[in-house]
Computed example of a mutant assay.
Amino acid sequence: MQSESAVRSHSPKLQEIAKTIRITGWIAFWVQLAFAVVSSLALLFAATGRGFTNQPSRGLGAGIFWAILGIIVLFFSIYWDFLYMRKGRFLANPNPVLHPSKADTVRAIKLGVVASVIGILLTLFGLGSTVGVLVAKSISQPPGVAITDPNKIIRALDVFVLVANVNGIAGHFVGLLAALWLFIRIDHNP
């Protein structure tokens, strides 16, 4: 007679959950990686371009700081997506000894939710400070008159900081959606 754990390891429901975890982790991994690369490149252009100009853009340091923190958390979230794929692979293994427990899997997914929410919060701080600087620059420019103060000009490098923060938010949002999807799928299965 087969033990309960051996029967559970071959159950179609467990195999379906394992496949869902693996595929969701794979999709989230690649989508978040794309957003992280775009965000990193935009921030790299903004940071290196600021050194080439004679007049540094004032006020964008805070946006760059928060974007860097958001990108660091985004790379952690990408690593966490990789761990989802591994957990799915372990669940699909016929050896029940290798299966992570449901509590361990739910705990990992909850940590993914927390990391994504923290990342969204950090990049929202960066986005808010960057938008504030860009709005201040735009309303300080007199309409139809030549600008004599180069610090009041909105440059492409300033917009790159905005792009980095927006892509960071999008990447964290994908991670949040993936973790919530997995949480719902696992929570509704015994």
Rank of each mutant, 00 (worst) to 15 (best):
I17P: 03
A115V: 10
V31H: 06
F125N: 09
G171Q: 02
A92Q: 08
G168S: 05
W30L: 15
P142G: 00
D187M: 13
S9L: 11
A164S: 12
A67S: 14
N165W: 04
L44A: 13
V31K: 05
P12N: 15
T24K: 04
G25K: 01
G132L: 09
N167I: 03
A103C: 03
A62F: 08
L134V: 10
N165V: 04
G126F: 04
I27F: 12
M1R: 10
Q2P: 15
G25C: 02
G49C: 08
G126I: 06
G132R: 10
D104R: 13
A103K: 13
V97P: 00
G112Q: 04
D187P: 00
Q15M: 10
L33S: 15
S101I: 09
H172A: 07
A18V: 08
V117I: 15
V133K: 09
A28D: 09
T130H: 05
P94W: 04
G126N: 07
L43F: 05
I64P: 01
G171D: 02
S138T: 15
I71Q: 10
A115T: 10
W66G: 00
P100D: 01
G112A: 07
V131F: 02
A178E: 03
L124I: 06
R107Y: 07
A136G: 10
A179Q: 05
H188I: 12
G126H: 00
H99L: 01
T123E: 08
A108F: 11
L14R: 13
S11R: 12
R22L: 12
W66I: 02
N167F: 15
L162E: 00
A28G: 06
I169Y: 03
H99V: 01
K19G: 11
L83K: 12
T48M: 13
D187Q: 14
S3Q: 01
V135A: 11
F76E: 09
K102E: 07
G128T: 07
S129P: 00
D158R: 02
T105S: 06
Q2K: 14
G168R: 03
L182W: 07
G59W: 05
N93Y: 06
I120Y: 00
M1F: 09
